[in-house]
Design a protein around this nucleic acid. Structure first.
Lengths: 192, 192
DNA sequence: CGATTCTTTGAAAACAGTCAATCTGTGTGG
DNA sequence: CCACACAGATTGACTGTTTTCAAAGAATCG
């Protein structure tokens, strides 16, 4: 529902009726069933996707054919492939739904148009990019400095609301460890 | 030298004489000797730093007191602590010079001012942030999906010009592996 | 309820980390 | 200019962690 999206935005900055109207006009609501793809590797990603319901996961496939989870995107998150979006090259990411979900899609040209029309939205979009960048730096630090158990603890601290909605083996994949190692790390934690 | 910086910018987009002047006015050139800090953890980082000469390394210190290299910044790169810059909180990063170096510093307020005055510069700054974000995503993918040897190969492919300028144990730290493991991985590679 | 997916557990193997010693090259002070 | 100190790299032996493979339980879904 577009209403969810507008509510999310108005929680960040005020909108006039005209602006709300303008935004609503460019929004396309799309339902995505569990296991269905929102984006497949190789396709061009040229839109913005706001998750209004459900949860998505993005992942890459390496040379050996193994999947590696990049991100989990529940309600009120944005998903997509920034690499493809910014550089206009084929996506390296796959994105699929882990639950029956719903996204608000805004085509890139439409988005650029409304950013110009609504400066507060442009500011917000910039802040979002900045925050995402800083978050990715924190994740890198965690990946190069932590043991398997520490990585998991960091994960549950950062994303407490996600743990119970996604399979553990995907969390393991996100952390760069095997599902068995994660299972054992969890075991160690309860024993302490 | 500010001239290097202006040359770097003009390589990306054209500048009028007035704009060049405007930029030069806000630039502060600073020499940083080898081993000297540009930024220390806990300080507030509220400037933009362009490396005009030499090379820097930024690193974080974890709970156990171990250093973890975050980035190497040679000539024509930007360095700093984005987390501190954007959120205006104390820096988590330390930055020091690995060679006698020189940076161009622009205070945050000055920078914001010239971004408004020079739209092409603002566009460029935005693109820079986008690219940095995408690059950090690629690094995350490498960290969660590769073995020690693969990480090193990825590193030399991505930063061929840096390998011979920084000590190996810092590259190991950047990759999240021990210096001994890197040494052995290099050995394996020449044998193949 | 049956099928599938997910998690757990065990044992073995591969991998990476640690510690200590040696080797190398560089730079500094006498 | 040499000698020495020092930082960095390598090597070996050992330890510890993580992966892999296989199998068995548990949970979920149609």
């Amino acid at each position: 529902m577009v209403a969810n999206f507008l509510k999310y935005l108005e929680d960040k900055f005020p909108l006039t009726d005209a602006e709300r109207e303008l935004i609503a006009e460019v929004c396309v609501v799309k339902k995505i069933r569990k296991r269905q793809y929102l984006l497949q590797e190789g396709d061009l990603w040229q839109k913005n996707a706001f998750v209004s319901k459900g949860i998505f996961r993005s992942y890459r496939v390496d040379d050996k054919g193994h999947e590696h989870v990049f991100q989990f995107c529940p309600e009120n998150w944005w998903t997509g492939d920034p690499g493809s979006y910014f550089s206009e090259k084929p996506a390296k990411l796959n994105i699929d739904a882990l639950e029956d979900s719903e996204v608000i899609l805004i085509a890139k040209e439409d988005y650029q148009r409304i950013l110009k029309a609504i400066p507060a939205l442009a500011d917000f979009a910039k802040t979002l990019l900045e925050r995402s960048f800083v978050a990715s730096q924190d994740r890198i630090h965690c990946l190069i400095s932590s043991t398997a158990e520490e990585k998991y603890q960091e994960f549950i601290k950062t994303y407490p609301n996600i743990i119970n909605r996604v399979p553990q083996h995907m969390i393991a994949s996100y952390l760069g460890i095997s599902p068995e190692t994660l299972s054992r790390a969890r075991n160690m934690m309860v024993k302490k």
